[in-house]
């Protein structure tokens, strides 16, 4: 057990990541940070330990200190950028898709950001349809998968409620707000693997599945995730 872990209750690598993220956010907001401000904003108290973490980062060439103000180097920026991207994508997944409460979302996002590989991150990003902002409205730094998107590759997954009338998709996930609804939707044929055809959005959602027209509440249409059929 290293001293750092005892101090901050987290592995030193995680502590370094935390600092990088904080500096990214500060840069985004246009408010440069000093070491003491950093410790305060990171909710750790003005602990000398953070000085050590920053020192490590400076030695690794990720952070520079000028006139007591911290800033990210180029390589620090790219590292921070990945972290922030993972954190915010995780927030979208937990909060918007899985409907977890914000505090739980935050807690998991903070864990996930340290362990997700680049591949997995891009997969999540595509799954979510390359969301531009996190639930707090802060921009999610685009990844490689998003730049390929400029070639107009449709998102892998979107909500049934986001399809345009006439579009088709294969259901990949049914996540109604009320869990007991799941059985009913399944009984009606709205189940993973089924192909749905969105007929209209107004005055109510109407979809065709298995040669049957179903009218759906907005809420329910928003809880059905589909992979849009490409030929449409």
């Amino acid at each position: 057990m290293s001293e750092g872990q005892a101090l901050y209750g987290r592995p030193p690598a995680a502590a370094r990541d935390e600092v990088l993220e904080e500096l990214w956010t500060a840069h985004e907001a246009g408010t440069p940070l000093s070491i003491s401000q950093l410790a305060r904003s990171i909710h750790a108290g003005a602990d000398e330990g953070w000085g050590g973490v920053v020192q490590e980062l400076v030695e690794a060439g990720l952070v520079t200190v000028q006139d007591g103000v911290l800033s990210l180097t180029e390589s620090g920026q790219s590292r921070a950028r990945e972290l922030v991207r993972r954190h915010r994508l995780a927030e979208v997944l937990f909060y918007q898709v899985l409907d977890l409460p914000m505090e739980v979302t935050e807690q998991h996002a903070c864990t996930v950001e340290h362990v997700l590989t680049a591949e997995a991150t891009d997969a999540v990003c595509s799954f979510l349809g390359h969301p531009p902002v996190c639930p707090h409205g802060r921009p999610i730094p685009p990844g490689e998968c998003c730049t390929t998107l400029t070639r107009k590759v449709a998102p892998l997954i979107s909500r049934l409620a986001d399809l345009a009338p006439g579009e088709r998709g294969t259901i990949v996930l049914v996540a109604p707000r009320h869990r007991d609804r799941l059985a009913q939707l399944t009984d009606l044929g709205l189940t993973p693997g089924a192909v749905v055809h969105l007929i209209q959005r107004q005055p109510s959602f109407v979809v065709e599945v298995d040669r049957t027209l179903l009218a759906l509440e907005d809420d329910i249409a928003a809880g059905i995730y589909v992979r849009p059929a490409s030929e449409w």
Binding site: P176, R177, R181, S204, L213, A215, L216, E217, D219, I220
Partner: peptide, 9 residues
């Protein structure tokens, strides 16, 4: 209730 209704032909 949330609304799920079959629309017959």
């Amino acid at each position: 209730a949330d609304f799920v209704l079959e629309v017959p032909p």
